[in-house]
Amino acid sequence: MSLDKATIRRVATLARIEVPDAELEATATKLSGILSWIAQLSEVNTDDVLPMSGGTDLKLPWRADVINDGGIVDKVLANAPEAQDGFFSVPKVVE
């Protein structure tokens, strides 16, 4: 399993991690190594096996519909790199 630079660029864009062009090659090599190692799973017979998606077989608990949270604007914004008038702010987004 070998990844090309274009794939790394696509995946990095999806993950919103800038990878400088100079690092694409090395990243591709490292990730290809890991992928070819994990590809060995294809040899395991999983016919008729149901996937296990969580760490437990407990039942999903439900919460009562009550308001018991919120009203903590200061705490919500306490760590904001940039905030104004109760809002978080980011560079202008164009729709």
Binding site: L3, T7, I8, V11, A12, L14, A15, I17, T27, L31, I34, L35, I38, L41, S42, V44, T46, V49, L50, P51, M52, S53
Partner: peptide, 26 residues
């Protein structure tokens, strides 16, 4: 993060993530 993004991405999910969940069950 890159590996995780890749194994969940369109066209690879079944071969990697779903497969891994099944092996996990085993």
């Amino acid at each position: 993060i890159l590996i995780g993004t890749y194994v969940l991405s369109a066209g690879y999910y079944d071969a990697y993530y779903l497969k891994a969940q099944k092996v996990r069950a085993l």
